[in-house]
């Protein structure tokens, strides 16, 4: 799940300063779960913008805003309302915002900050576990990702700031390498910690990423 958070309302309003008429776009997937751009948030945004003197020409919740063809098709379905607007305010992740920008010649305004690929701990509580590094080490690290859970992403054991299993950057957090150590110990596989992991191949995460599935 892509975790996003709505930008503060004054910031959104400032971005819409030159555009009195606004069309709203939300997303039924991740942004709905994150409460940054679901039906409820789009409705609240419409109320807030109207109260701030903006004219909202219409709104749309796309099933997956990152789906470029679907985004284009859904926007065409609301053609008149979209045409009336000066800008499209998108409450979806950065991928969703760009589907909209690609599908419409109107000014696109992003109403969210996209934060990370997240696991859902419980309703409304998200945690980053994977950094999308393109070079998965989880088999070697007991299914716990040091690239993500360690703020320094160190690959060969804890840094000098670890003490009592805690992280130097966040004293509330358990050191990723302590977690790996505890799990490997319980599996009687501690010898895994003795192997040196070579420098990471960052060429595997060069931007922009592309994948085309061959048949």
């Amino acid at each position: 799940m892509i975790i996003s958070r709505q930008k503060p309302f004054p910031e959104i309003l400032a971005a819409l300063q030159q555009t009195p008429r606004v069309f709203l776009v939300g997303c039924a997937k991740c942004a709905t779960v994150c409460k940054s751009g679901g039906e409820e948030e789009v409705w609240q945004m419409q109320e807030a913008l109207s109260a701030a003197g903006k004219e909202v020409s219409g709104s749309l919740i796309i099933d997956e805003a990152c789906h470029m063809l679907r985004a284009g098709r859904d926007l065409r379905g609301k053609k008149e309302q979209v045409e009336e607007a000066d800008a499209l305010l998108v409450l979806a992740c950065g991928a969703g915002v760009q589907s909209i920008a690609a599908a419409s010649a109107k000014i696109t305004v992003s109403g969210t900050d996209t934060l990370f690929l997240g696991n859902i701990r419980r309703f409304g509580q998200f945690e980053q576990r994977c950094s999308l590094c393109g070079n998965c080490l989880l088999t070697e690290t007991a299914g716990i990702c040091p690239v993500t859970l360690c703020p320094k992403g160190v690959l060969n054991g804890p840094c000098g700031g670890m003490d009592n299993g805690r992280c130097e950057v966040d004293a509330e957090a358990e050191c990723a390498w302590f977690q790996i150590y505890e799990l490997l110990k319980s599996q009687s596989r501690l010898e895994r910690l003795a192997t040196i992991t070579p420098p990471k191949d960052f060429a595997r995460m060069l931007k922009p990423g592309k994948l085309k599935i061959e048949k």
Binding site: G157, G160, M162, D163, Y181, L190, L193, A194, I196
Partner: peptide, 22 residues
């Protein structure tokens, strides 16, 4: 660098040995 007083020492020792091997 080494942190002799950091716990668990068994965990830091793995890294210290890697540092020497490297």
């Amino acid at each position: 660098a080494a942190a002799p007083q950091a716990e668990p020492f068994a965990l830091t020792l793995f890294k210290l040995e890697k540092k020497v091997a490297a």
